[in-house]
Computed example of a mutant assay.
Amino acid sequence: MSTRALILFAHGARAASWAAPFERLRDLVAARTPDVDVSLAFLELMEPRLPERAAALVAQGVTQLTIVPVFLGQGGHVLRDLPLMVDELRAAHPGLSIHVAEAAGENPAVLQAIGDYCVGALTGAA
């Protein structure tokens, strides 16, 4: 078991099919990082929720956790809800080192990839 883990943190939705692209993303990341436990966690409406997933990872011996908010922008969930959840995680698991990355949509490389896709849609290449 690795001591490092990566959680892709998403909003969640009522329709189970909504999670499909996030599951594909998780699988792509996991294939590139075989020494890291890569999983999904959700803010609401889907399981596992972030606190429960983090607790399970700690129980498995994880000591270093990176959380990547898979959101296009830094709205209320990323600016308010996530920091509160992370504070609670730090209090509950004092031995756990937690790093929170910027929202995926705030990253220049992610925006470039989405922009490339949009431009490709104009020519039918997307």
Rank of each mutant, 00 (worst) to 15 (best):
R4M: 05
R4T: 14
L6D: 04
L6T: 07
L6F: 05
A10N: 04
H11Y: 11
G12Q: 03
R14H: 10
A16G: 09
S17I: 02
S17G: 07
A20L: 03
A20N: 05
P21Y: 05
E23M: 03
E23D: 12
L28K: 15
A30N: 14
T33L: 15
D35G: 10
D35F: 06
D35W: 08
D35H: 12
V36A: 09
V36K: 03
S39A: 15
L40W: 10
A41P: 08
L45R: 14
M46P: 11
M46L: 10
R49G: 03
L50P: 00
E52A: 15
A54F: 02
V58N: 04
V62M: 10
V62P: 06
T63S: 15
T63I: 04
T63F: 00
Q64Y: 09
T66M: 10
I67D: 08
V68M: 13
V68L: 15
V68H: 03
P69T: 05
P69S: 07
V70N: 02
F71E: 04
L72E: 02
G73N: 14
Q74S: 15
Q74V: 01
L79A: 15
D81S: 13
P83G: 12
R90N: 07
A91C: 06
H93F: 11
G95N: 11
G95Y: 02
H99T: 13
V100N: 00
A101L: 08
E102H: 08
E102G: 08
A103L: 06
G105T: 09
A109W: 07
A109S: 07
V110S: 06
V110T: 09
L111A: 11
Q112I: 05
Y117D: 15
Y117P: 01
V119Y: 07
G120S: 13
A121E: 12
A121K: 14
L122M: 13
L122Q: 02
T123M: 01
T123V: 05
T123A: 11
A126V: 01
A126C: 03
